[in-house]
Design a protein around this nucleic acid. Structure first.
Length: 808
RNA sequence: GCCCAGGUGGUGGAAUGGCAGACACACGGGACUUAAAAUCCCGAGCCGCAAGGCGUGCGGGUUCGACUCCCGCCCUGGGUACCA
């Protein structure tokens, strides 16, 4: 169980909104397909459904112990056949619309483990678990055509109230770029090489071409002289992992194909190379290289001694590629002259010319790739697909759900086929429509599938006629507030938006975007650790010496008492020349800094955990855990309890008490609306500190305080509510109102500054006009003395706040 | 490299452009106690005996007034990575 920070935040808001009379849909569900249960099944032979059920029960208990007010009647699990029936139904919609297709795609196959691994499970070409070699093996996969929705996924970000950072990450992921495709003829071959470029303006500066090692034309480009070397290069590139092709590749590699392309603007013959710095999956898989104005091409040209031709002035191409804006040079033929134009002008001019000549056209590209949507695993949704005569055919929707077959083992077959293939009786069947022999799809859907639409099912979890009733959907959607971790910023949120848009096009949902407001809770780190480093001889060394070479040193965690603050950081008490490292780290089992919420609940109670998680700081921020901080809020709750040991009086609040009470209600109301839970807790603490000094507690103050506290600490809230003589839960009692009039003071302190420096304080009505304040201020003896004999250049007064006299 | 977020006491953090450090933790002092725990009271940004000075990563700017707005940098964290 992770930290219940987001759950607590939404629970507080849900409880608050309920008290304000809203219908609140606050559900919980389980995204329970996937690895943990499958791993356990592999090891023990236990059916994953059994493990899943157990895990869900344990998790539900943990959540219930924290007092979250979920509507458990709406609980869903992605692994429940009544749920995944509709996941499969949505897949059929995608299939019908041509958005789901089969393709050969390379996957990470680990022969030793007999399974396919995700990219995250592969480290340096070896399996994270067991350190076995991993190879890239093409396999038949299901793909979803998310690229067809790229433009809408980009444009509709304007419709939602999300943090700008998340929107920006999605924009980058979609990666729209505008440029042109240009056709180059190949000298001596009846073939053209099409390239994509965002810089058609630099066409006159193209001095060579590069095709990706996987480019289909490559085999036609090689000559007898180059065939051998190019084949070797292709093999080497194919065996490189993604990581090796990018991060680890310091320099450029490549091979000359033996062919030449003809630059359509000047008829120049330029060599065609192949290199893995060009990706087959982006654009056309081929580029025109303009080393003078592209950093990658520049590096490649220098490595292989290829010519560099300047076509934009403004840089020094003998030193580096110039990628900025400038004036075009050396860019004219008999029909078109770009010289003298800037980059933007020349782009438009050359693109128009290419289009007119039929040599190319403007083109928009996206980095976004189609979504690899199948896994070779057991514990996932079966695809409702039959293969008949070599073609995929949809299983009729009224035969859903299609449940996973029983198998003797939960691992792939010895041939490497997915686990479902172990049950031949299930796989081999007959197409009920044509009566022809058919075999069932044996891949399963990835874990994303079920989590792409769960928010819709919460609205109508029992419906067996549709994923969601249209009327109910209209009433509840879109989701008003989604609190989640930033780790979902791109993939989950993009996939869910994609499915939602498909459902929108099918008329299943009424709004183009699923989640109106999104807030990312910040991660909670472990406690701050202070680390002392020592070199190989055991001599202590400063943190700054260690930077980026951690593995050459040993580190030890030392207690806070051995550290002293000096300058920016901490130094070691025993030798103040040794700088220490003070940092909080991500909670992880291997680091041993995991704080288990269960333990905190056991020791301090659920309300303390809830309150502390909210008191730590702003919801969105990354925050380090502190057990001392938990004790602090625990003390506060005890103080609240003791406050209610005061006699409860039936007399009304006096003016000061009322002002305090209404101030609290105002502060908490506004802060909860703005999700500023930390400052609302601080306000409650101030109230309790002040009220603790009273002789008795007026009933109206006692009751309203409990109501305001209750969304944060529901257990204590209900208990105190009962002790005040109430017999019903406070969950649906009206949230207390505040009265601005009560907050008004007859007189407030006004600061008087002279040239911005505080000089005196005067008392005045908060409504006093600037003129009144200024004359009052000038009459104050200290002020009068300070400005005596000086000329007042400017007089500023802010009612209720301050007076600033600028005297020279 | 690029994109995003952030840098305020010993610590977590608070401050519609208007007295920086609310609230809490840790710390020091005191009360209660045989003692401890719990609780309560008091103190405290830094330098300085004091007067006073200096303080929101650094350098500029706008303003009567800047943690807050603008420009340029530095550092930390997260994401991404040869996308032509």
């Amino acid at each position: 169980m992770g930290h219940p920070e987001g759950y607590t935040a939404t629970d507080i808001l849900a409880r608050y909104k309920r008290m304000r009379g809203y219908n609140v849909l606050h559900p919980m569900g389980w995204d329970a397909f996937g690895l943990p249960a499958e791993q356990y099944a592999l090891q023990t032979g236990t059916h994953p459904a059994e493990t899943t059920k157990k895990n869900i029960n344990r998790f539900r208990e943990q959540l219930q112990a924290l007092g979250f007010s979920y509507d458990w009647q709406r609980e869903v699990s992605t692994t429940d056949p009544d749920y995944y029936k509709w996941t499969q139904w949505i897949f059929l919609k995608l299939f019908e619309k041509g958005l789901a297709y089969e393709a050969e795609a390379p996957v990470n196959w680990c022969p030793a483990l007999g399974t396919v691994l995700s990219n995250e499970e592969v480290v340096n070409g070896r399996s994270e678990r067991g350190d076995h070699p991993v190879v890239r093996k093409p396999m038949r996969q299901w793909m979803l055509k998310i690229t067809a929705y790229a433009e809408r996924l980009l444009a509709d970000l304007e419709l939602v109230d999300w943090p700008e950072s998340i929107k920006e990450m999605q924009r980058n992921w979609i990666g729209k770029s505008e440029g042109a495709e240009v056709d180059f003829a190949i000298d001596g071959l009846d073939a053209t090489l099409r390239v994509y470029t965002t810089r058609p303006d630099t066409l006159f500066g193209a001095t060579y071409m590069v095709v990706a090692p996987e480019h289909p034309l490559l085999d036609h480009l090689v000559t007898d002289d180059t065939r051998h070397a190019v084949a070797a290069y292709k093999t080497a590139a194919a065996n490189k992992s993604d990581l090796e092709r990018t991060e680890l590749a310091k320099g450029k590699s490549g091979e000359f194909t033996g062919s030449y392309a003809v630059n359509p603007v000047n008829g120049e013959k330029i060599p065609v190379w192949t290199s893995d710095y060009v990706l087959v999956s982006y654009g056309t898989g081929a580029i025109m290289a303009v080393p003078a104005h592209d950093e990658r091409d520049y590096e490649f040209a220098n490595t292989f001694d290829l010519p560099i031709a300047e076509v934009i002035s403004g840089g020094d191409i003998s030193k580096e590629a110039f990628t900025g804006n400038g004036v075009l040079v050396n860019s004219a033929n008999t029909e078109i002259d770009l010289n003298g134009m800037d980059v933007a002008e020349s782009k438009a001019a050359i693109t128009a010319w290419l289009e007119q000549k039929g040599l190319g056209a403007g083109k928009v590209n996206y980095k976004l790739r189609d979504w690899l949507f199948s896994r070779q695993r057991y514990w996932g949704e079966p695809f409702p697909i039959l293969h008949v005569d070599g073609k995929p055919v949809a299983v009729s929707a009224d035969l859903l759900p299609l449940v996973p077959p029983t198998v003797d083992e939960y691992r792939p077959s010895p041939e490497g086929d997915p686990p479902f293939s172990r049950n031949a009786e299930w796989v081999n069947t007959v197409d009920p429509v044509s009566g022809k022999p058919a075999w069932r799809e044996t891949n399963t859907m990835p874990q994303w599938a079920g989590s792409c639409w769960y928010y819709l099912r919460y609205i109508d979890p029992q419906n067996d006629q549709a994923p969601v009733d249209p009327e109910k959907e209209k009433y509840w959607m879109p989701v008003d507030l989604y609190v989640g971790g930033a780790e979902h910023a791109v993939l989950h949120l993009l996939y869910a938006r994609f499915w939602h848009k498909v459902l929108f096009d099918c008329g299943v949902v009424s709004h183009p975007e699923p989640f109106h407001r999104l807030v990312n809770q910040g991660m909670i780190l472990g406690e701050v650790e202070i680390t002392l480093f020592r070199d190989s001889e055991g001599k202590p060394v400063s943190d700054s010496e260690v930077r980026n070479r951690e593995n050459e040193f040993t580190s030890e965690r030392i207690p806070e008492s051995e550290a002293v603050k000096k300058g920016e950081g901490f130094v070691w008490k025993q030798d103040e020349n040794i700088r220490l490292r003070a940092r909080a780290h991500k909670m992880s089992k291997s680091r041993g800094n995991v704080i288990n919420p269960d333990d905190v609940v056991m020791k301090y109670g659920a309300d303390s955990l809830r309150l502390y998680e909210m008191f730590m700081g702003p919801l969105e921020q990354v925050k380090p855990w502190s057990m001392k901080g938990v004790e602090g809020v625990y003390r506060f709750l005890n103080k609240v309890w003791r406050l209610f040991e005061l006699p409860i009086s039936d007399s009304a609040c006096d003016a000061d008490q009322a002002r305090l009470l209404h101030g609290l209600i105002k502060k908490v109301t506004e802060d909860v609306e703005g999700l500023r839970f930390n400052t609302s807790i601080a306000a409650m603490m101030e109230f309790v500190n002040a009220a603790g000094k009273w002789d008795s507690l007026p009933r109206e103050a006692a009751e309203r305080f409990v109501l305001v506290l209750s969304p944060f600490a529901p257990h204590l809230g209900e208990e105190l509510w009962q002790r005040l003589g109430n017999t019903e839960t406070l969950a649906y009692v009206d949230w207390p109102e505040f009265d601005e009039a009560v907050l008004l003071m007859d007189e407030v302190e006004i600061l008087v500054q002279i040239k911005g420096k505080p000089v005196a304080r005067i008392m005045a009505s908060p409504k006093a006009s600037p003129e009144e304040l200024i004359s009052l201020a000038k009459a104050q003896p200290d002020v009068a003395a300070a400005i005596a004999g000086k000329r007042l250049v400017k007089e500023i007064a802010v009612p209720g706040r301050l007076v600033n006299l600028v005297a020279v």
